[in-house]
Write a protein that binds this DNA or RNA. Sequence first.
DNA 1: TTCATGATAAGG
DNA 2: CTTATCATGAAC
Length: 202
Amino acid sequence: MSIKVLADVTSPREAGLIILGSTLTVDDVALRIVEVEAYGGEKVGPWPDPAAHSYRGQTPRNRVMFGRAGLLYVYRSYGMHFCMNISYGPTGVAGGVLLRAAEVVAGDDVVKERRSRARHKYDWARGPGNLGSSVGISLADNGLDVFDPTSRVRLQLGEAEIWSEGPRVGVSTAADIPWRLWIPDSSAVSAYRRSPRAPADS
DNA sequence: TTCATGATAAGG
DNA sequence: CTTATCATGAAC
């Protein structure tokens, strides 16, 4: 059911809306997703997106996003942070929703240990790298089925009643496509930072 | 507001 | 080999 919905989306934005407000569980830690970014896929496909890892085709790193919907795509960002995406769309068509920020709703003790340098609780999973760190994700989790009840990483879909939309953070191309979605009344939402390489706003 | 960090992938 | 990237925290 959940997988079917993500497999049948007609746009990256729709996939992002499905993920926003959902609950991510990793071992004893549970997060409420309050900020996501939708990414499209290949140049030749339904959602060409120059900012997507999959835009220039399949590589060893991004191959999970070419698989079926509901798989966890973990990548190493800037050589040091682990970030998480949920794949969507039909098998063979790349697409992913980046999990950018969340509120910790269970497992406070272990998260507090992992994020001991964070000043406030709302900083624990604020930003994609921090989110990954808070749940202790690694490349070993790449490709897990988040709708498999036996999986270490699981996603329970839930809807956001109210949300906002705007341009994605840090991307230098397609910088004005409003595929960043967030829940405005959450302090865990990360700060907007436009890429210095992106063209100036119009 | 700028900078070091440093794996992956594309381009020269 | 050189450059850019779905980022972060600390220095300036």
